[in-house]
Design a protein around this nucleic acid. Structure first.
Length: 967
DNA sequence: ACCGCCGGGTGCC
DNA sequence: ACCGCCGGGTGCC
């Protein structure tokens, strides 16, 4: 399976060298090759243990790989082996070959391995006791349906797989224990499996409070213009330490001459690769971006700051250049040589030496040095900076090159004395190879989701001192400069996950560069190891690796593998070791496994929440936040209409409750509730629906009705969750029994059903071809409300009263007006216009481009900038920065109070200067009041959801509905 | 002795 | 490898 990727030399002596990686020219180590191959390895999840078999490893004396007592080994087929095409190689965790499986046994195993009938895992209980052979305990894992084939095949060859009798989960657990790695010394009682609840709790808290013993603060380099807050200095100190430290990675310790991993029981003669980097998992708003910028500027090499030039210096030491050439970059002699003639005196004011140029699209700003951009590779040679310091600089350069070569995996650098891209030490033409495939590390690559790309550029501008020229290049858009020489001469290159994955493969410049540092912003988005994007990220070459993420775990242990693999946390970057040492034990609720996972995470993660404290003081001291509920009284006519609808709805739902058919009629129930909520906001929100949603005569009618119901569910504020994934609904479809799910979720339910698939909510029969989607045209039509005559409502009046009062008090106050109903936002536009408010609108239908634009407009402090943002509750999600606003008006209550909190946090976050006022409009004596009452319960329900059964959830839903309708 | 036994050379796949 | 296997030397006890 992996073997085709391995370059074997069958000469005994050179083979040893291969495995010790001493003569490998490329930076790709065997371990990386295994990792690459093994990332395709399926999850251990679906596999069951068939049984064990004692085998023999032979030929130990030919290889350097050592195995300790209890250590796991990898078994790898070698179909190309000239002596035996059934050969099965045995490798230790570090990827060093240990020996081979004895010929006869290998012959039996080869068939099973080649046909993927089972995954064979080895544990050596005895360790390498003798010089020639050793026993190995083999465990066969595979799909249940292959169990007998495997056992019989082995039996026919005279190998009896010991199945241990039972095949229950308990047996799996027990046999895991019996064949597992020699775990850390386990305390008494730790063999009792965790309960689901314990596991879930431990998991939720995995990333909590990861700040102890990470104190110590570090000042940022002077080139960072913004003073760091204490917790940011703490983070900077930790990050620098992570990058510079010589300490061993987690679980490694020195034992005499050897380095020993207490988890895998592996020991090695060489120092294990350090993880230079980690996960910065601070809550959003704590300044991960600023901290990262500080890191880039502060910790370039051996704790020294990134050499950047000041404006003054450049005007004296370099030839004059035109303003456009200066731009934001540190200049090199090359640009001077290439363009000096046309140069104009450099501006030496305190104007930011950053120029934003349009790249591909108008809302994407690129920061670059035009002269660099237009300079061809050939002109990049003569690089002479600070000529007066040439002597000492060269010394430093050697030191630097040596330091770069220090890591065993960065062998590419050792090939030559590399001076070309060390920006502090530009020397001469000859040191720059024309081939440019040996680009060493001085640049930081930042990969970010498109939506926060502009944020990075802004933050660089904002936090890097104006007189410092930092070369930041936005690698985005079709005109992006793909020259490796150019890119690696930058200080910072910013790109998106999509660009990276689009580039990867055929001669990707980003993959050709050995980066000083790679930073994954919102790193949790690469959690699926099979995604192209993830593979592209793993393939990057870098000396230091960082993951920034506010929410490092989304769902399960599995998500973590990608993060560790990216960080190259040995040996878990190889999927097999991860599966065997962490994932499988944890999913089987093994305490030691969980403990190990916790230790692992703790070693590489720094996370603070808003409530964390540094030196006894809160990490962030945000301005005060006042939340008040403003009761709205309906007008008489509104009240009459509301009561009418309420009584009707109550009767209907009461009937469903009595009949026990609430869930069967769930869509109707939601529709009723939604109509009541809409009544509370504005009468025109009510969808004009056919009064009779009863039996449909024709398929077309049925479809029409289903679409109508789907529309109601979707319009109900999006916090309706899919009962399959318990997440908000993605790609909604409605079943014939009128229940709404994510299409992928329900499709999976249907495909995994044995015979007839049944609706998870009401057990009606469902079929894939009967799922109804929302027609696209309808989607668009939804946005055009054709209310010719605009009318007001009590809630609109309440809002306008507040807005007008605020404008009188202080016209600079900005407000967020939030609703779950985008049509309500549309309705609100009319009175806003009428009263001359300048406003913008942000909702889920807008393109990323437009969003960025709107946010920028709103955040601007320009005198004519918008003072109101109409915000759809579900728009944007986390990460939005709307600190320009200090007042939030929540027009209607959400099912989930966390959604409201999240929305409030968009302005009540770091950067907010004013006191924040939140006003929640709640209509008195209405379904809204009841919603507020059950919000707390709803929160508890969400927390319970993980461990609870489907029945529990159904019951709670019915209770919710009863409470809402006062039944 | 067309054996057994002894002891040296040797050894993955 | 403190094995097994091979093949040559040897041969009552």
């Amino acid at each position: 399976m992996f073997s085709h990727r391995w370059r074997f030399s069958w000469d005994r002596y050179s083979e040893v060298d291969l495995f010790t990686d001493r003569y490998e020219a490329s930076a790709e180590t065997l371990s990386q090759a295994i990792r690459a191959a093994a990332s395709e390895e399926p999850d251990a999840d679906g596999s069951v243990l068939f049984g064990h078999l004692q085998g023999t490893v032979v030929g130990l004396r030919y290889y350097t790989g050592v195995v300790n007592q209890g250590e796991m080994v990898g078994l790898v087929r070698q179909p190309q082996n000239p002596y035996d095409r059934n050969a099965v190689m045995v490798a230790n965790i570090y990827g060093n070959q240990v020996g081979h499986i004895k010929r006869e046994l290998a012959a039996a195993m080869a068939y099973i391995m080649d046909n993927n009938l089972a995954k064979v895992e080895g544990v050596v209980h005895t360790g390498t006791k003798n010089k020639f052979t050793m026993p190995v305990m083999l465990a066969f894992w595979g799909k249940e349906e292959n169990r007998n084939v495997v056992i019989e095949h082995m039996a026919r060859r005279g190998y009896k797989v010991n199945t241990g009798g039972s095949t229950t989960a308990g047996a799996h657990y027990a046999s895991y224990k019996s064949q597992g790695a020699c775990a850390l010394p386990t305390k008494k009682g730790s063999t009792v499996p965790l309960t689901a609840e314990e596991l879930k709790n431990a998991f939720d808290n995995l990333f909590e409070d990861l700040m102890e013993s990470k104190d110590g603060e570090k000042e940022a380099a002077t080139s960072v213009g913004t003073p760091l807050l204490p917790h940011q200095k703490q983070a900077l100190s930790w990050m620098c330490a992570q990058e510079n430290k010589s300490a061993l990675p987690p679980f490694w310790e020195k034992r005499g001459e050897l380095y020993y991993n207490s988890l895998t029981c592996f020991s090695a003669k060489e120092v294990p690769d350090r993880v230079r980097g980690g996960i910065l998992a601070d809550d959003m708003g704590l300044g991960k971006t600023l901290t990262t910028i500080a890191l880039i500027l502060t910790n370039f090499h051996k704790g020294k700051p990134l050499p950047v030039e000041k404006c003054e210096e450049q005007s004296t030491s370099l030839k004059a250049k035109s303003k456009s050439q200066m731009t934001l970059t540190k200049l090199k002699g090359s640009s001077s040589a290439g363009h000096g003639a046309e140069g104009v005196a450099a501006p030496c004011s305190d104007l930011p030496q950053v120029e934003l140029i349009c790249a591909d699209s108008p809302d994407i700003i690129g920061i670059t040095d035009k002269s660099e951009k237009s300079t061809s590779k050939g002109k990049m040679k003569a690089v002479k900076r600070k000529p007066s310091q040439k002597g000492p600089v060269l010394l430093e350069d050697l030191d630097f090159a040596a330091a770069l070569g220090g890591s065993a995996s960065d062998t590419g650098i050792k090939k030559k004395k590399t001076t070309k891209t060390t920006s502090s030490t530009m020397s001469v033409d000859s040191s720059i190879p024309e081939s440019a495939d040996d680009l060493s590390a001085t640049a930081t690559l930042i990969i970010s989701p498109l939506s926060v790309l502009s944020n990075w550029l802004e933050q660089f501008e904002q936090h890097v001192r104006a007189d410092v020229k930092l070369k930041v290049y936005l690698y985005y858009g079709s005109e992006r400069n793909r020259s490796k020489t150019f890119l690696s001469s930058q200080d910072v290159v910013i790109t998106t996950y999509n660009v990276l994955s689009a580039d990867s493969g055929n001669k990707s410049p980003l993959h050709g560069i050995n980066w000083l540092r790679v930073v994954l912003d919102e790193g949790h988005i690469i959690r699926n190891p099979n995604a192209q994007m993830s593979k592209a990220v793993l393939d990057l070459k870098a000396q230091r690796r960082w993951i920034l993420s506010g929410t490092p775990i989304q769902n399960s242990v599995k998500d973590l593998w990608m993060l560790l693999a990216f960080l190259r946390l040995k040996p878990f970057d190889v999927r097999e070791w991860w599966n065997r040492v962490i994932q499988r034990p944890v999913t089987q609720r093994d305490r030691a496994g969980l403990k190990n996972l916790q230790t692992l995470v703790k070693c590489i993660t720094l996370r603070r929440t808003k409530s964390s404290e540094v030196n006894g003081r809160p990490v962030v001291s945000l301005p005060e936040k006042m939340v008040c509920v403003e009761q709205v009284e309906l007008s008489q006519s509104e009240r009459e209409e509301y009561e009418l609808a309420r009584n009707e709805g109550r009767n209907t739902i009461g009937r469903y409750v009595a009949e026990g058919t609430v869930l069967r009629n769930y869509a109707d129930v939601l529709a009723i509730l939604m109509r009541l909520r809409q009544h509370c906001c504005h009468p025109d929100l009510l969808a004009k629906i056919s009064s009779d949603l009863g039996a449909a005569a024709t398929p077309a009618q049925l479809r029409e009705h289903l679409i109508e119901k789907l529309r109601l569910v979707l319009a109900s504020g999006s916090d309706e969750e899919c009962s399959v994934c318990l997440d908000s609904i993605h790609l909604p479809v409605i079943t014939h029994c009128a229940h709404v799910y994510c299409r992928p979720c329900i499709a999976q339910v249907i495909s995994t059903a044995q015979e007839t698939a049944r609706c998870p909510l009401c057990r009606s029969e469902i079929k894939t071809n009967e799922l109804v989607e929302f027609p696209q045209e309808e989607m668009e039509k939804e946005n055009h409300t054709n209310s010719e005559k605009w009318r007001t409502s009590s809630k609109v009046q309440a809002l306008m009263g507040n807005l007008l009062r605020l404008r009188c008090e202080d016209s600079s106050i900005k407000c967020l007006v939030v609703s779950q109903f985008t049509r309500f936002l549309t309705i609100l536009e009319t009175p806003l216009r009428e009263h001359g408010f300048s406003f913008v609108r942000l909702d889920g239908t807008m393109s990323q481009k437009r969003r960025t634009q709107v946010i920028q407009e709103f955040q601007s402090s320009a005198p004519n900038s918008p003072v109101i943002m109409l915000l759809s509750l579900k728009a944007g999600g986390v990460g939005l920065n709307l600190t320009a606003a200090s007042h939030v008006f929540l027009m209607d209550p959400a099912w989930n109070p966390a959604t409201e909190e999240q929305c409030i946090d968009r302005c009540h976050r770091l950067g907010q200067k004013r006191k924040v006022f939140v006003t929640k409009f709640i209509v008195k004596d209405s379904v809204e009041e009841n919603m507020v009452k059950i919000q707390k319960q709803k929160q508890d329900l969400l927390e319970k959801a993980f461990g609870s059964t489907n029945t529990d959830r159904k019951a709670s839903r019915i209770d919710d509905i009863k409470a809402l309708m006062e039944l």
